[in-house]
Design a protein around this nucleic acid. Structure first.
Lengths: 335, 335
DNA sequence: ATGAAAGCGCTAACAC
DNA sequence: GTGTTAGCGCTTTCAT
């Protein structure tokens, strides 16, 4: 059984031409209800599935899309990809997943491979902008590429709002001298969360002396642990720490513990992403939850309307976030 | 720029026929070094990439494979997929990722879609066995499908060994009355880890009265938390708990804490998978690390040799695991 | 060493 | 409402 049955054979068995089978399959009309029934019956009986390579060649459009992310191992991207794959599969598309490991060259190679395969569209969280090539819709997800100029379809979550909410929570819970642990060189989102931090700070009339900044080179747990310990041994003192990632908050938590500082008694702590880690570190770390379903739904509907050549209303979508409160920002017992 | 340049045009520009271009591209010989150089130069100059749909149609084989897993959000599968995608991309293949959410019907739909698209092979962690169809190699990964008969290519990690190592660690660290928290109805792996537990138990000459069994319906954190709390309120007492998953150990940890039981002072705890969670819960949970690279390398090389019609030596590969020690099994302070 | 020609399985004019 | 026909861009005999 090397090759399964093809359209021509189905046509013969149903006593019609291949065109008719094709029309029935694609619901293109111009066939009688009777013919339709007969064709579908034969198709069902022989368990026929059209050859997608042939269809793809003929129409220059395949029924799959590419999803390019930095690292599927990051729970944020894993969830994003899961949702996207589910939604797209229900629309009849399969998903090619590509990890770039933050490597721009690898990103380019993946884009090229996807285009060679006539991917129907590409959802990408990356660093480059790909000007509309070969008519393949590009949808930029989660993170602004370098040189972002507003003229691409971009769905991001409201990172400034997230940074603001987390910081406000610290302040509302009695924090007098907050600090932020971020990795501003990593991407735009990191910087946006920082902006949110500053916004909350300003709102309270606090000035530069009232808060501290701890920078990390990357978002690794170990890097954050070290950054926090170094800051403390350098004499930096704070009673609330806003971290721009849950991995970072987990690292920070370890660093604090090793310095004999207790969460939330001495320092309130917030993370970002509401990842499983945030649930299990200590008695839970307060974290900013991104609305992945909304991001994915927006992305999918933009994709679909681009297929129909209908321009979506906006180019930039900023999806609101919410705060998930946990023990790490419990109001401190008076002392 | 709707359609990029095609092979015929490249041929014209190079002053040769399409056949020659094809031969050069596929390194099929029968062309002069001179011709080759000229063709490659034109290809490079025009940044030509062959249309994979046409190639796929003609050869009935595409340069992508399918990867079917229950849930990419599970860090174990995320890592597996990441490694597999990286290794396959370097071999020139893209990867279609499909999540089944443990739904066998969805699994079947995914397999069908992949076959319709002429996937070159399918790596699957699922519940069904797909007898070699359309000559597409199936490689079963990580978990034995229902009705496993030994006549499929199966790469698993040595779950019995893992269960044994974790349990032995508990006993070596002074545990006198161990318990196991597992979800035996979930899959074969859960039961294999249980076997490992019993093996370690027997080795010490312990009998049924010397240990306890806590069953969970599934591997969710909340389920484990509840299972542990219920067991304790039912009077079950133990001083070491071997959990068959890291999510479960995290849930168990919460359950224990809520019962006022301290890890590792009152109860030693082990998990399974060495996921990021195991690093951050408490001061770290001892966990069994699976050798994902070895699993992936084996899977890829089996895939490649199947393409060359060379039968791999074995059908079943069981990859050894290692134990990662953390604070949750620190030798208890004498008391 | 190279080219001509056929055809993979499908779709989309175009005819009737 | 249905069939005929002509390719989509490649690979692969078969000639030469």
């Amino acid at each position: 059984m090397l090759n399964s049955i093809n359209m021509k054979e189905i046509a013969m068995l149903a006593g019609v031409s291949a065109s008719t089978v094709s029309r029935v399959l694609n619901k293109n009309g111009r066939y009688s209800a009777e013919t339709e029934a007969r064709v579908l019956e034969i198709i069902r009986k022989y368990d026929y599935t059209p050859n997608m390579s042939a269809k793809g060649l003929r129409t220059s459009r395949n029924s799959f899309v590419g999803i390019i992310v930095p690292d599927i191992t990051n729970s944020h991207f894993a969830s994003l990809v899961l949702e996207l794959e589910k939604a797209m599969f229900e629309e009849g598309y399969s998903c090619m997943i590509c990890n770039t490991n933050e490597n721009a060259l690898l990103e380019d190679r993946h884009v090229k491979a996807l285009m060679a395969q006539n991917a129907r569209g590409i959802f990408i969280t990356g660093t480059h902008i790909y000007e509309k090539t070969k008519n393949i819709p590009f949808i930029y997800l989660d993170r602004r590429p370098r040189g972002y100029h507003g003229n691409i379809f971009m769905i991001e979550s409201d990172n400034t709002m997230g940074g603001y909410l987390a910081t406000k929570e610290l302040l509302d819970m009695g924090c007098k001298h907050p600090a932020i642990l971020s990795a501003p060189n990593v991407d735009y989102n990191q910087r946006a969360r920082f902006e949110g931090f500053k916004k909350a700070i300003r709102e309270r009339g606090m000035t530069r002396g009232d808060y501290d900044i701890i920078d990390a080179e990357d978002t690794l747990m170990s890097t954050s642990e070290k950054a926090v310990m170094d800051a403390i041994s350098d004499g930096v003192r704070f009673d609330g720490l806003m971290c721009t990632t849950d991995t970072m908050s987990a690292g920070a938590n370890v660093g604090l513990r090793k310095c004999g500082i207790s969460v939330p008694d001495d320092v309130l702590l917030t993370g970002y992403d509401d990842s499983p880690i945030a649930e299990v570190v200590g008695s839970g770390i307060t974290s900013v939850r991104q609305n992945l379903s909304a991001m994915v739904n927006t992305a999918v509907s933009i994709f679909l309307s681009m297929l129909e050549e209908k321009a979506p209303e906006q180019m930039l979508y900023s999806i609101p976030v919410t705060l998930v409160k946990r023990d790490s920002t419990q109001k401190r017992s008076m002392k």
